[in-house]
Simulated scan of single mutants.
Amino acid sequence: MSTPDLAPRRTIAGVVAIWVLAAVAGVAIGLFAPAPWRAQWVAVALGGCVIVAFAVQLWYGRSQAFIQRMALSSAGALVVLAVITLGFGLASLVSG
C-alpha cells in the first residue's frame, strides 16, 4: 500500500503544454513547409506530440489516470493540429 501524496502536482498543465506544442508546431508547419508537404509534416508533428506527451506524463510520476492523461493529450493535439490545418487549407482556397 502506498501513501497518498500530500500535495500532488497538477496534471492538467502537462496536458495543456502538449496542446500548446501542437499549436506551435502546426503554425510553424503552415508557415514554413511547402503546401504539398504539409500533410506529411502534420503527421510527424502529431507523432512528436505523442512522444513528448508520454515523456511529460512519465515525468509527473503518477500512475493514477495515466491512460486518461495520455489520451487527452494526444486527442487534444490531434484536434489542435486538425483545426490549424483546416485553417491553412481554407486560406489556400481563398488566396489560390
Rank of each mutant, 00 (worst) to 15 (best):
W41E: 07
V42D: 00
V20A: 11
V80R: 00
V42Q: 02
L90T: 07
A39N: 11
L78F: 14
A53Y: 01
G87T: 10
G76H: 09
A17M: 05
V79Q: 09
A25D: 06
P36K: 08
F32W: 15
V56I: 13
G14E: 07
L81P: 00
V50N: 01
W19T: 03
G26P: 01
A23S: 13
A45M: 04
V20Y: 04
A53T: 01
W59V: 06
G48E: 05
T3R: 13
L86K: 05
A25H: 02
L58N: 13
L31D: 06
S92I: 05
A45Q: 01
G87S: 08
S2E: 15
A25I: 03
V27W: 08
R9Q: 15
A71L: 13
I84K: 00
F88C: 05
P34I: 05
F66M: 13
V44G: 07
G48C: 07
S2C: 12
F88D: 02
V79H: 08
F88Q: 04
P34H: 05
P8I: 04
A17H: 05
I29E: 00
L21D: 11
P8D: 05
F66Q: 09
A43P: 01
A35V: 11
I12M: 15
S63R: 15
A82E: 03
F66Y: 15
G89K: 03
W19S: 07
L46W: 12
A39P: 02
A39I: 07
P36D: 09
A28W: 03
V52P: 00
Q64G: 07
R69Q: 10
V20T: 12
P34T: 05
V52H: 06
L93D: 13
V42A: 06
R62I: 09
A45I: 02
A71M: 13
S95W: 11
W59E: 12
A43L: 14
I29T: 00
V52Y: 07
G89T: 14
R62Q: 14
G61E: 13
G76C: 09
F88V: 07
F32T: 13
G14H: 04
G14D: 12
L58M: 11
G30H: 04
